[in-house]
Design a protein around this nucleic acid. Structure first.
Lengths: 204, 204
DNA sequence: GCGTTATCGAACGCCGTGTTGATTATTTTG
DNA sequence: CAAAATAATCAACACGGCGTTCGATAACGC
């Protein structure tokens, strides 16, 4: 990691991030102007341009930081000795715990008129961290599922996440994680072990 | 229905819709300006403002028309005598056939950096037309699924739709519809008839 | 054909953008 | 603590898209 930036820089960027989050709660991104953001943050407009190209650039920076944190939280699971359902369970809980802790920004980005590029990035992470692992676990002796089946599972998980965030997380991250795990386990049994009548569920 | 608008009006709007679609294939919506759209369409800028408030207003009009057509296609299923799996099958095929016919705009709106508001509207339709019906079919004697289970199913379907659109629809609408139906049938059996170990799968 | 109406072309003020240079304030370093 | 480094400020600038206006022209519906 490069040396920490100047304290003033950290402060300014934090103010801008908080300001944008606040504005995004009120209005759509395309209606947010650099000028009004700077007025809200009580910052000179020139200062903004010293850090970001435009509002979208600022949002991208926020998203990338969020993504990096998210992957860091999930990181311990990637090491070789971590596999099997027990480990996956804690991974799912970590996912929802992270979303819970960053619920403010995550709800904005994942729900309503959020950012589909960000949703896609989260999907990719979920696919790699959860389903690619499962795919290997189920591979020996069992029929492989198609890309469509994985797309279904991954999008399904994100859908539950969105539902949970949109309704202000009425149950704990651990509870919702358990719910998803049960749903997936059931689904896995049905989709992988069952004999689908159609022969269409093949790779793409 | 109100009387058809002037031929010139129809022409102008069609040109603008086609022009916006073309531009959205090249760049993100926020980078599209009224000026460049009019230049592309060879239309006076004032003419644009005679029809739409701004680019987002134009896109909204396109989305609403698309949504109306989609609901019209599904309409025959809503009548009372249409229920049961056989009817649902044709409904799913109609969904994918519609998406196939309007693949150009639907891919832009549903994939990549599409419009989450539009995705949400499609989700709502799918939920009402498909799952609310199924919910009733399975309700007598069987345990009800939670909102999260429905969110999972609905988002899963949309996820498959996105996967299919993103990869330029390598298989026919009827095939992909059949695939989804099989996936859902399996899922329904597992989720509704099976005995989930956890008691968490309750309404919200 | 006649009355209606949409499109055009040009022009207008407005406002946000992105950048500049000089000045002041804050932080880091030795 | 002092000095060097760097960030934030302020005012000002040209630029360009926005949204609207007008009269003139062309296309439309009946």
């Amino acid at each position: 990691m490069v040396g920490k930036p100047d304290r003033r820089v950290r402060k300014t960027r934090a103010i801008l991030r908080a300001g944008l989050e606040q504005l995004m709660r009120e209005k759509s991104l395309q209606d947010i102007t650099v000028k009004e953001l700077c007025t809200l943050c009580d910052l000179n407009r020139g200062t903004f341009y010293a850090h970001y190209r435009d509002v979208y650039d600022l949002l991208t920076a926020i998203e990338e930081e969020l993504q990096a944190e998210f992957e860091a939280v999930l990181e311990p699971l990637a090491v070789a000795e971590s596999f099997g359902e027990a480990r996956q369970s804690t991974a799912m809980a970590k996912l929802f715990r992270f979303m819970d802790e960053n619920a403010g920004m995550c709800r904005i980005l994942l729900c309503d008129n959020g950012d589909m590029a960000f949703v896609q990035r989260i999907k990719d992470i979920v696919r790699v961290r959860f389903f690619d692992t499962w795919r290997e676990l189920f591979s020996d002796g069992m029929r492989a599922a198609s890309e469509y089946t994985y797309a279904f599972m991954v999008s399904g998980c994100i859908g539950i996440l969105q539902q949970w965030l949109e309704h202000d997380r009425p149950i704990s991250p651990e509870q919702i994680a358990l719910l998803v795990e049960n749903l997936l386990t059931k689904g896995m049994e049905a989709f992988f072990c069952g004999n689908l009548k159609s022969g269409l569920d093949q790779g793409t």
